[in-house]
Design a protein around this nucleic acid. Sequence first.
DNA 1: AATGAATGAGGATTCATTCAT
DNA 2: TATGAATGAATCCTCATTCAT
Lengths: 222, 222, 222, 222
Amino acid sequence: MAVINRAMTGAQKQARRAEILKVAMGRFALTSYATLSMADIARQAGVAKGTLYLYFHSKEEMFLALCEEELADWFAALDTALEQRRADMSIAGLVQLFAESIATRPYLLRLLAILHTVLEQNVDHDTALRFKTFLRERLLKTGALLEGYLRFLAPGQGVEVLLKIDALVIGLQHLAEPSEVMRAVLAQPEMAMFRVDLQQQMLDTMKILLMGLAYEAKYKQA
Amino acid sequence: MAVINRAMTGAQKQARRAEILKVAMGRFALTSYATLSMADIARQAGVAKGTLYLYFHSKEEMFLALCEEELADWFAALDTALEQRRADMSIAGLVQLFAESIATRPYLLRLLAILHTVLEQNVDHDTALRFKTFLRERLLKTGALLEGYLRFLAPGQGVEVLLKIDALVIGLQHLAEPSEVMRAVLAQPEMAMFRVDLQQQMLDTMKILLMGLAYEAKYKQA
Amino acid sequence: MAVINRAMTGAQKQARRAEILKVAMGRFALTSYATLSMADIARQAGVAKGTLYLYFHSKEEMFLALCEEELADWFAALDTALEQRRADMSIAGLVQLFAESIATRPYLLRLLAILHTVLEQNVDHDTALRFKTFLRERLLKTGALLEGYLRFLAPGQGVEVLLKIDALVIGLQHLAEPSEVMRAVLAQPEMAMFRVDLQQQMLDTMKILLMGLAYEAKYKQA
Amino acid sequence: MAVINRAMTGAQKQARRAEILKVAMGRFALTSYATLSMADIARQAGVAKGTLYLYFHSKEEMFLALCEEELADWFAALDTALEQRRADMSIAGLVQLFAESIATRPYLLRLLAILHTVLEQNVDHDTALRFKTFLRERLLKTGALLEGYLRFLAPGQGVEVLLKIDALVIGLQHLAEPSEVMRAVLAQPEMAMFRVDLQQQMLDTMKILLMGLAYEAKYKQA
DNA sequence: AATGAATGAGGATTCATTCAT
DNA sequence: TATGAATGAATCCTCATTCAT
């Protein structure tokens, strides 16, 4: 921190907000959401606890903002990648892109896993609306892009696919991050089936999903 | 409750344990896991708080047991249904069976949604092992059954399908149960895409998944 | 508000101070002192929070000023009324005048109820001195007036009576404004004795007080 | 503390409750209600903070119980004294008794001063009801006693007198306990009028009140 | 004079779990 | 085996006030 002392202009305020989020993310990387305290974040950010609440109405809102940032970043990376690899856009290539870009974002994954059950709980109407509006726009945009690549998708199906993937990601992340005890249990040979390689699973399942859609589309035509 | 004061024999102990679980479920039906207190369950069950801990080491273990019961019940229902409808076992029929049997078990759904993030957290090794062993056996059994019906499934793929469905169910349940505020936000017309009809979504997605698998199998052969 | 941006002259400063007080009173009318925030007053007054502190050193000082205003207003009304009704100045008439003029000033009553326990707490010496000096002068003036009407009062007893009335008003106001729960409890028939009709009580008690004084005076003479 | 470790019987629980109240009173004697923390009371009582909440639902309820104890004690002392001095029960004697017994109970006075504005605020219906029921019974009893001594009181007027005295006591206590700053201000010679000798004031005012009532009674007869 | 960003102390309360009886 | 009294950790948030600009 330290550069700004009093964020007077809008830009400075944005900067401080961003700084706080950066610190929050750094701490989130070290522990779970539940064990992470606002006091700790404030201390690490070099600001008073009250200052945090100047920028975010609650702990949940703070991490919802973080989740939005991560999502925005991910969507951006996705869009960029999609445009670069325009040549090879087979199902396999697309799925590879998705699975890789998600699986390499552990914080996004952890945030998505608690998004609905925690982060969206203690938040005011405005914040909730803003978040969903953002999400909606990104989904529509990337959904449309998707439809461009996967010609078997009917109009509007791009978004549907993305939402299914969202659900899938949340569920797989739950399966992939067992508790300490559970990890020990799953280490036994006969429990191998429960050990989830997140990226592999996503790769695998998304491919099946898209193939199913392609098949369905062909089948319908006939 | 209350007839038995001291559960001496093994059978009596089992009975009391079952009673406690029944009461716990009744209370869980009324509120969320977080807002449900052990004191309340004890009071409703007509026993002392300490008594609960004679049967379950923790709140999490208690609800993990509940989850196991619900899962056992669901698997049993599934098996029965599968055997009855042996004649018509198209993908559509199977999917219908699954989606319906899950979607009509709201408590199982709510328990699965917190299974990995909450229930499996504060549990000792033995309990965790027992639970996963139970789950493994059921998955293997029903997985094999599934392979019998869906001939395109390779050996071992039945279980894989079930695990994918598990992930899907968890994710969809998260999407389908928004917070109070979020529900208000999603009520707006342009947010329709976020409103999830759980049963429909499961029906739809599972069908696509299975079709994808069928397609993949055929494709591989060729 | 808002016309003046910088209050330069003494008159302008007085005007802004008065405006702030007016707004503060308006907000006080809507909630309790404790739940009323300086931020809210600033917002409603169209000034920054810091500006409030240019005119008042603390929240307490602000409401002490308000209390002073209300008291000045009440004393003025009292004096005017006293002079108008010079003809009929029986104890009953006087008491009626007092009780009515106080009971119809709910904000003055609420301020008096917290005057000593709250408003006089976080205030600097100067402000405290100024307030008590003001109060002293008004008490002396109206006290003397009172002695003119109630001939049985010895010199100096006018002020004493006023101070006794002050104590009485504070106490009765406390009794007359029960909490939400208490209101429910006092609604029961057998609790009727606790339900205080402020104006009636003041009327009643002040009359008794003055009659006692009159009686004592006569008794002493003899 | 220390004698009891676990209060199992009803009597032991009563004893522990009493102990906690004793400690609370001891701490209340040293600071104001606001600056007194539950943590401090727990520490001093040698119990955990949670234990406090086993006996009282809130800080307010705790001090309401204290107030009740003090009131009960005061009423008892009053009754005893009344019966002992049956011979001389002039107004002067009675007033002396009242003023002395109240003025020598500084904690009762301080509790009464915050009874309506603080203690009765954060309390559940049951507690509120119990408290007022207790108060009602004591008032009726002592009110009746009073009517026995002061023959000019009509039936029911005993309670009325006690309630007026209650209001008076609260108001006078407010006037008699100025803040630090105010004390300095009132130390100046010309501010002498504001310096309240609680016992003297009560003596004086109660006498006037009773004489007023006596006078009124005689006057009505005629 | 005015602003409004920053401060930071401050404390009641809950509830899963334990353990003396 | 059953009880229920006792534990105590654990933390979010408010808001009057200050002070750099």
